[in-house]
Design a protein around this nucleic acid. Structure first.
Lengths: 244, 244
DNA sequence: CGCAAAGTTGAGCGTCCTCAAGCAGCGTGG
DNA sequence: CCACGCTGCTTGAGGACGCTCAACTTTGCG
C-alpha cells in the first residue's frame, strides 16, 4: 500500500531530450518532404506482409505493432511503435514488406514516398541522420528483445517489458506511474514468446510482490509507482536462478 | 547413404544475384569512400560494447558475430555476419556501441568513418541505397530470428539455423552440400536461445533422420545434400505440434 | 439482459534445462 | 612416443519451468 503511493512524479518541467529529438524530426519532415497524413482505427493495417514497398511511415499519434508472418501462418509480434517511430524499414531491402504494421488504437501516420525521402535526404543531411538514427534504434531494440527472450525467465521478461514501456512513455513526456496497456494478454504473450496464461500469472505475481499494482477497475490499467522496482525484480530473478 | 550423395551440385555458372549486389557495393566503397583495411584473428573484436561509435565496418573476408551484453553480464549472440555484411549500425543512434563484434576466424573488415560515409552518401545516391539496404536486411533478419525463437521447437530451430546458413553460403557462391560450422555448440545454442546439450541432441536427431550428415572426422563438418529436406523437417515439426 | 471476448487460476504434462559421466580430438611436455 | 590436460561433444537421468487444457469470473457491447 505504502510502496504504491510514495512516489508522486511531478510533470516534467523540462521536456525529455528524446522528446525534443522527435519534435525536431517531425518538424523537419513537415518542411522538407512531401507527406500525406492518414488516420487509422484499431486493427487497420498501415501495410501488409507481401505488399510492394513504396513508402515509409512515421507514427504521429497512437500506437502500432509490427507482425512478422511466416508462409506457414506462424505470426510473431516483433515490434511496438509510438509517436516518432518509423514503420516499414523492413521493406527497403527487397522491395516487399516482410512484416505488417497494425494500428492498436486510433492513430495517425505520416506517409512518405521512399523516392521523395531519398531526394530529401540528399538535400538535407539532418534528415538522413534522422533516418539512420531511427533504423539504428530499431536494430538495438530488436536485439534487446532477443536478449530478454533468451536470457530472462517469464516473470522477469514481463517486468522487462513493462520497464521498456514505462521508459517509452517517459521519453514521450507521458506519466509512467499509471497507464493503460493497450494490448491483450495474448498479444503481450506473443510479443514476449510465451502464452497468455503465463503473462496473466506473471502479472499477478508482480502485483502480489507489490512491484506493480492494478487499478481497481479493469486489469488493463497498471500502476508502476517505481520503475526501479522492476529492475530490482529482474535482478532478483536472475540472482535466484544463478545460485544453483 | 543414398540420400546423402544423390545431389551433386555443380559450381554455379551464373553468379548469385546477391553476390553481384555485394560485389557492386564493395566496388563502390573502394572508389567512393576512404577506407582502411584491417585483418583480425579468431576472437579479436572489431569493436566492443560501450565504445564510442565513430565508424562502420564491412566484412570483406571471414565471419563475425555480434554479441549483445547486458550490464549484469548476460550475453547473447544476436547476429552472424559474412562477406558484404555491415557491422556497427547499432551505434549510430546514441553514439556508443551496444553490442560487440568478434571475429570467428581470420577475417578482414573495411573500416569507414561514419562522417566520411555520410559525405559520400550525399555525393553517391547508390551508396546511400547500399547502406539502407544493409540495415533493412539486418532488421528483417533479426525479426526472422525472433519468429524462429518464439515459434519453433528446439529441433526445428536448429534446422532453421542450418537452412539460413546454407542460404547465406549459396548467396556467396559457396557450396552448400558440405561445409564447416565455425561455431561451438555453445555459441550456436546461445544464438538460438538453448543450451549446448540441446543443440547436440538436435543435431544428432537431424542426422538420425538423414536430414543432415556428419563428416566422418570431426563433428563440425556437416553435409546437407538437400536444403529442402530441412524445410520439410521444420514443417513436419510444426504439423506434429499442432495436431493436439 | 445476455452473449462474446478477455482475464484469472488450477491441475497435469511435456519440453528443455541441469547435472553428471564418458569420449574424442589436439597441443604440450616429459 | 605416449601420457597428460584441455576443450569440445555426446548421451543419459532427473527435475523445473512454462504450456495445455479446462473451469470459472469479469468486462464490454449490442
Amino acid at each position: 500500500m505504502q510502496t504504491l503511493q510514495t512516489v508522486i512524479r511531478p510533470p516534467r518541467a523540462v521536456p525529455h531530450p528524446a522528446g525534443q529529438r522527435i519534435a525536431g524530426m517531425l518538424a523537419r519532415l513537415e518542411t522538407e518532404v512531401p507527406l500525406t497524413r492518414r488516420v487509422l482505427r484499431t486493427g487497420e493495417p498501415v501495410y501488409r506482409a507481401g505488399e510492394r514497398f513504396e513508402a515509409l511511415h512515421v507514427v504521429h499519434a497512437g500506437m502500432f505493432k509490427t507482425v512478422n508472418v511466416a508462409p506457414d501462418g506462424r505470426e510473431q509480434v516483433v515490434g511496438l511503435h509510438f509517436k516518432g517511430d518509423w514503420l516499414g524499414f523492413d521493406g527497403i531491402a527487397d522491395g516487399h514488406h516482410g512484416c505488417e504494421a497494425i494500428a492498436m488504437d486510433t492513430g495517425e501516420v505520416w506517409t512518405i514516398r521512399y523516392d521523395d525521402l531519398l531526394a530529401a535526404c540528399s538535400r538535407t543531411p539532418a534528415l538522413m541522420g534522422d533516418v539512420h538514427t531511427a533504423m539504428s534504434r530499431e536494430l538495438a531494440r530488436d536485439r534487446d528483445s532477443m536478449l530478454a527472450m533468451c536470457t530472462l525467465p517469464a516473470d522477469a521478461r514481463v517486468a522487462d517489458f513493462l520497464r521498456h514501456w514505462a521508459d517509452t512513455l517517459e521519453q514521450r513526456g507521458l506519466r509512467t506511474d499509471s497507464f493503460t496497456l493497450r494490448m491483450t494478454r495474448a498479444e503481450i504473450g506473443n510479443f514476449l514468446g510465451m502464452t497468455l496464461e503465463t503473462v496473466s500469472r506473471s502479472l499477478s505475481r508482480l502485483a502480489r510482490d507489490k512491484v506493480i499494482g492494478f487499478a481497481e477497475k479493469g486489469r488493463r490499467e497498471l500502476e508502476i509507482p517505481d520503475v526501479a522496482a522492476l529492475s530490482a525484480f529482474i535482478d532478483r530473478s536472475l540472482a535466484a536462478a544463478t545460485l544453483h
